[in-house]
Design a protein around this nucleic acid. Structure first.
Lengths: 333, 333
DNA sequence: ATATAAAAAGGAATCGTTTCCAACCCCACA
DNA sequence: TGTGGGGTTGGAAACGATTCCTTTTTATAT
């Protein structure tokens, strides 16, 4: 049995289809009494507007797209959970577009902008691309989360340099002066965001200011293999002049350091202090001291900004919104 | 500037719109030479078919929906990541519908089935509902993941009873005979799947068979508050006749037990052994011994089954597909 | 009661596809 | 040369909404 359409509603309510459409879209051009009749008919028939027809005719999709790098990392997922949780009560559907390279991101964004399959877009940790080749940027509400690369859109992110400063100041304040660093490679052509670099620089600046020791042997970046952080940790902890503390650019890497230390019979933090970055859920269980960025909240704020834009026609300023950072002291430093 | 439509392509290729449509849909009714001309025109114009029009006319949405309970738990997320990863190369978009109650699930499913906004559906851990009120079940390809409640659809799940048996046998084989249990409440009206109950039953059966001691004081279920597992753990570990090992129905709860034990100065596993259930990512870092179910793989298999159905018109048998379970021995038991 | 303006309502045209039916082409065969 | 029939092709109709223009109704002022 065919689901009811707008004509069925119109007939049952004894009105024209135009009137039904106006009721559906909250036009003021309908008498209260007529509106009642139409709403009653809608109710009785269980009518739900066909989204495809709506989209074809009016251009509205009721879809919000999220473009995200292929997510297995908890930090992406927590942001996504934040997005999802606030979208939940709205009338918008969430479509997930996952991407795996910069080129892929570019074509995906281009398609989405020309095809208009979404009413709005959230760009999660987008890479740097050549935006001059993108069409009609202005017409699509876009909010960027966790990337400095798209300053032409409103962007929620953190101050990575500050993060490095906070972590380092904390370690120094605890009396750990010889500080190592383990992070991603600095020049990832696809998804390198500069985050690792800025966190590292924040650390270096703080060390200089405090006249704390530095040693290039203590700093490790990227490399191949999924347990590369373990390898780095092992090398660092095996040095004769090994660091007294290690700062990692993610909690996941910090977990690896903790476990390598334990495997080697080192006590945390008595022999080696560890501080991570992100404060993902698991860090609480690992008792990891870390620099907290509000992952879940950042998702929530992003989607609320976008909804305000779409629903209330209230475009946010195209600027960087910096989210707060804080050190969460737990057991590892 | 308006994006090109099928008429533009037809004009440029000097054919009718019907022919273009046939080319787009790989109909065999087109001469090779004509097909070439059309493809060339499509290429030159950068034509992309409008999905809304396609959907309105032909009914095909190119969308796969995933209905999932409000996900913050890592196990849902890992399944979702598995789904996403295999969808990635297909032409389908993924829409996420999150639900928060049984009633909500029912209406959502009903809407999706009548509105036909998706070509296929994945039901992630769906609750038990009255399916007699659902319309036209037959027309929508649906695969269920992680639930025994929808036997009318092909279902991927695990044997929870067996999971309980495996965990218990493992603990007994290690010499831990006094075994406690911490799990969710058994009668959650919304999302209770019976999983906790069956795991517990598997445990009880195994204990009986092995003539191992039982004590109802050692078994704790559900309760309010987000740190309820910590409360349970604390109570269990404070008993004079406390259990020698604890089996939890999720890794997350096991983490709580580990931390409570540490807080109390108990050594794991020397004083108290712990085994979890799921093997989420974080369990590796926590060195948690656990019953592994293939979370990521289960998502992958689900989506591949559905794609085979949609793309190759190859419907799977409507049966329960049981995924393998295994105990992963790590440091806690 | 009538004129006039404003509000409300009706419905054709429109969006971009697919599908179906009619028309056409071309070749084999008589 | 004429005919039948398969393979191709063209394009009207249909999908279900929104929008805009027109017509009708209602309210207000005279």
């Amino acid at each position: 049995m065919r689901p009811p359409n707008i004509k069925d509603v119109a007939d049952r309510a004894q009105v024209g289809i135009g009137t039904v459409s106006r009721v559906l879209n909250n036009s003021s051009q309908v008498r209260a009494e007529t509106r009642e009749r139409v709403l009653k008919a809608i109710e009785e028939l269980g009518f739900i507007p066909n989204p495809a027809a709506r989209q074809l005719s009016g251009g509205k999709t009721s879809v919000i797209g999220v473009i995200t790098p292929f997510f297995t990392q908890p930090s992406y997922v927590e942001r996504l959970a934040g997005i999802q949780s606030s979208l939940y009560e709205s009338d918008y559907d969430l479509v997930l577009y996952s991407i795996n390279s910069r080129a892929h991101f570019h074509t995906r964004l281009q398609n989405l902008l020309t095809q208009r399959r979404t009413d709005g877009l959230i760009l999660l940790t987008p890479p740097r691309i050549d935006t001059r080749t993108l069409p009609e940027l202005e017409n699509m509400p876009i909010v960027v989360l966790d990337s400095p690369h798209m300053p032409q859109y409103p962007t929620l992110r953190i101050d990575d340099h500050l993060g490095g400063v906070l972590a380092t100041e904390y370690l120094l304040s605890k009396g750990y002066d010889k500080i190592g660093f383990i992070g991603d490679r600095l020049d990832d052509p696809d998804f390198g965001s500069g985050a690792t670099q800025h966190r590292f620089e924040g650390m270096q600046v703080t060390l200089t200011k405090a006249q704390a020791p530095k040693n290039h042997q203590w700093y490790r970046f990227g490399g191949l293999g999924h347990d590369i952080a373990r390898v780095h940790a092992y090398e660092l902890l095996n040095m004769t002049d090994r660091p007294r503390a290690i700062f990692t650019d993610s909690d996941i890497k910090a977990f690896d350091v903790i476990n390598v230390a334990k495997d080697m019979g080192l006590r945390v933090p008595e022999d080696i202090a560890i501080i991570g970055f992100d404060d993902i859920d698991a860090s609480r269980y690992m008792m990891l001291t870390t620099v907290r960025q509000p992952l879940m909240d950042s998702g929530t704020q992003t989607i609320e900004m976008l909804l305000d834009w779409l629903v209330n026609k209230n475009p946010p300023e195209k600027m960087m919104y910096f989210l707060p950072l804080e050190v969460i002291p737990r057991g590892t430093a």
